[in-house]
Design a protein around this nucleic acid. Structure first.
Length: 468
RNA sequence: GGUGACGUAGCCAAGUGGUAAGGCAGGGGCCUGCAAAGCCCUCAUUCGGCGGUUCGACUCCGCCCGUCACCUCCA
């Protein structure tokens, strides 16, 4: 039996105990990138929330099937391809590839499916047909619209009163004519020079919201457990998905809706004009480590606004370092006889708190606090006389679980080994130290430091590793 | 105008009725030939402000101040 988890459902505005439709199995749909550009750290915050969600569910014993769409047909991709004079596919392929490279760098686990909107045109057309059969649509100037007046539940996710949504400066930005400004387009009539599909709906292309309904239902079923995105998706995107999906099937579309808060940079909304807009690539180019970025983005619970700062990034890097240092000490310190200075209860308490925090609507800040408390106890025990073999294995297993869920544990495995030249320098330095020739010893250490090698003289000998 | 968040130490942040987790930064100390790593001590008599409820409130209620988000491009 999987462990229970409590999640805040946007639909009910409450933290609820999560119950999958099929016991032990979770089907989740996560809104993915529009592939017209490199993803920025705000996108990444959301993807990382989804990654921690799927990892937590898996660690808790659920079998997870995750779908993440790749939006490769919309105004932005069309514009981008046209601007460069390449086909839509060539243009979007580039950013799909970049997207995968970026999430790989951040250790995001792959979803089971990454459907592209352009590869599910038939499903989208079929969905519109079902909506038409049930009287939810109308056609105007070759485009097909969803008439929200036919869907009584409209507004239930966002809590917006549709009657309050009035035509104004911000409404009806798109050029297509609608019967009612609140209606949204399902199928857009072709415009000259734009990609179009010749279908029973006429020559055109799918509207923005259609792909998620069609692909979600195609890959996960007409009703599934979880649908996620960032808060700005609540309205109109997810509201419209519900209308489209439930309008077509007459069944509940999604049981639990989860939304990640936005991130701000140095307290300001991230915007290109403000000069605080960062892609992953920007940060890596500045020399920040992917693991530190991941740690920072994961350290604030997903429903909290995250203030991304360079101070915070340095703190995150320090946090990652501390985990690695402790793991390294643990590996290099000989095991104590028997239980040693760390009681087995310390590990058990940690696991209970760590899992408890995650089960509480993914409270990653609390989970991380538990990790640090464990690290302190481990270091105390290491100072106090060592840790027994069995307990040490328990600590390592616990940190492996931390890594399985949060993905923030640096690898110390292959460090400090297999480099005969460095080993020789270390040996030479130790000979100098023994001879009390500290000038020579420090010169060697200085040289190694310049090469990015960190030395540690422990009671059990000198160990070295490469600085992060 | 409508709807909804948030305001805890220098910074990030947990807690949400029982007397303030954790991390980073800072100060002092131990260890070390010196470092590195680690450990110890220290760092909010107080949780935006003012009232109220309560034996007791950071936690509940009211008002006020401030910051922010969404209201059909937006992760």
């Amino acid at each position: 039996m999987p462990r229970e988890i409590r999640l805040f459902n946007t639909l009910t505005r409450r933290v609820e105990t999560f119950r999958p439709l099929e016991p032990g199995r979770v089907r989740m749909y996560t809104c993915g990138p529009t592939v017209y550009n490199f993803v920025h750290i705000g996108n990444l915050r959301t993807f990382l929330f989804e990654d921690v969600l799927r990892r937590t569910l898996a660690a808790f014993g659920y079998r997870v099937t995750q779908v993440m769409n790749l939006t490769d047909i919309d105004d932005k991709t069309i514009k981008g391809a046209a601007a460069e004079g390449v086909t839509l596919r060539e243009f979007t392929d580039r950013y799909v590839e970049a997207f995968f490279a970026d999430i790989d760098a951040l250790r995001v686990q792959r979803a089971e499916h990454y459907p592209r909107a352009t590869e599910f045109i038939a499903h989208q057309v079929a969905l519109v047909r079902r909506l038409s059969e049930r009287g939810h649509t109308y056609v105007q100037d070759g485009s097909t619209y969803f008439r929200i007046a036919t869907f009584p539940g409209y507004g239930k996710l966002s809590g917006l009163d549709v009657n309050e949504v009035k035509a104004g400066a911000r409404v009806d930005a798109d050029e297509y004519e609608k019967e009612d400004v609140r209606d949204f387009v399902l199928w857009k009539a072709a415009k000259p020079g734009e990609p179009a599909w010749d279908t029973e709906l006429g020559l055109g292309r799918p509207g923005w919201h259609l792909e998620c309904s069609a692909m979600g239902m195609a890959l996960l079923g007409e009703s599934f457990d979880i649908h996620t995105g960032a808060v700005d998706n609540i309205f109109p995107h997810h509201e419209n998905e519900i209308a489209q999906s439930e309008g077509a099937t007459g069944r509940p579309f999604v049981h639990t809706w989860l939304h990640a808060e936005h991130l701000v940079v140095e307290g300001q909304k991230m915007a290109k004009s403000a000069g605080n807009f960062f892609t992953l690539r920007d940060l890596l180019a500045k020399g920040h480590s992917p693991l530190a970025i991941r740690y920072l983005l994961v350290s604030v619970p997903y429903r909290q606004k995250l203030n991304f700062t360079f101070d915070g990034l340095h703190a995150a890097a320090a946090g990652v370092e501390r985990i690695g240092n402790t793991l390294r000490r643990l590996a290099h310190t000989p095991a104590a006889a028997g239980e040693g200075a760390l009681p087995a209860a310390a590990v058990e308490e940690f696991l209970a708190e760590f899992d408890g925090a995650l089960a509480d609507d993914l409270n990653t800040a609390r989970a991380l606090a538990a990790v640090h408390t464990l690290l302190t106890r481990v270091n105390q025990a290491l100072d106090a006389g060592g840790i027994g073999e069995r307990i040490r294995a328990g600590v390592e297993a616990a940190l492996a679980r931390v890594d399985a869920v949060l993905g923030i544990v640096p690898s110390v495995e292959s460090e400090g080994a297999g480099d005969a030249e460095i080993d020789a320098l270390v040996a030479e330095r130790n000979a100098a130290r023994k001879a009390r020739d500290f000038g020579r010893a420090d010169a060697i250490r200085g040289e190694l430091t310049a090469r990015g090698i960190v030395l540690e003289d422990t009671p059990h000998g000198t160990v070295w590793h490469r600085s992060a």
